[in-house]
Design a protein around this nucleic acid. Structure first.
Lengths: 141, 141
DNA sequence: ATCCTACAATAGACTTTGTCTAAGTCAATC
DNA sequence: GATTGACTTAGACAAAGTCTATTGTAGGAT
């Protein structure tokens, strides 16, 4: 996904393009994935010093609604934003240092939930979060 | 699991038994599962008006460390505490109203993560969260 | 090119959730 | 029933996020 693609898509959806929104989108499209809102803000400030926290939160929220970015709540701390929204994947998290990897397990967890376990819900989505220790933290332990 | 069992187990682990801890444990053992810390506090206050928020947080944290209670971070809001720690299960969450059900899907997600997708991590745990709409919210939509 | 106007951005107050600390209290042991 | 160290308390503090009133501006209309 090239940057211009994302910006084009957003414009096509009736987004008003502003310097702030462009910067937030650019920050997310780097290879530094899984940033928190504050990390996004910190990086955005480098390019556009006067951008406010509120705008970063608003823009991230809009990107999530548009389906361009995923919200990931792997730990109990800040939400993280994952621009890899167009390829389904799950997450592997280090319980010690919080490092996050995208993973693609076999199988289809949605199919593994029998009707008798659905309580009449309309189930649309599954998130699988694997937890463990990354090589670094395992070595330190 | 009877209440006295839990209290016995805690005492056996060297817990000093206090009115506050007893009340928190009792609140969690009702059939009102998946409470937030503040909900636990609210219910505890009914029985023991002077119990403080800090004590509820401390006690919940201790119960989690002891493995008697699970922390569940299904949504991005407050953590929830699940006393059903002795039977493994996953969660089904209503995206609208936040209702939570315990579910027992088939299959073994841990086995579905190939070595090539483990990045050298020592994987010890999987959480599966199903999302959708509960019957009420689906009807309202 | 300039003007308008609705939408967007800003600063900062506010809320929620959770942690920490210093001082007082009390359960378990002797 | 005295001792003592673990437990509890109130409230300050912190982190993450939301809301609001005001100011700014993108982009279409002129």
């Amino acid at each position: 996904m090239r940057m211009s693609d994302l910006l084009e898509r957003l414009r096509g959806r009736g987004w008003r393009m502003t310097a702030q929104r462009r910067v937030v989108a650019e920050v997310l499209n780097g290879d530094h994935v899984h940033l928190t809102a504050d990390e996004v803000h910190a990086r955005a400030v480098v390019r556009l010093p006067e951008i406010s926290r509120a705008t970063v939160y608003n823009t991230l929220g809009e990107l999530v609604s548009l389906g361009e970015v995923l919200e990931v709540a792997t730990d109990k701390r800040a939400k993280r934003y994952d621009p890899n929204a167009h390829r389904p994947h799950h997450h592997l998290v280090c319980a010690q240092c919080g490092a996050i990897k995208d993973v693609h397990p076999d199988g289809n967890p949605l199919a593994d939930l029998p009707d008798s376990e659905r309580f009449g819900f309309t189930v649309s989505n599954v998130e699988v979060t694997y937890r463990g220790l990354c090589p670094n933290c395992a070595a330190a332990a």
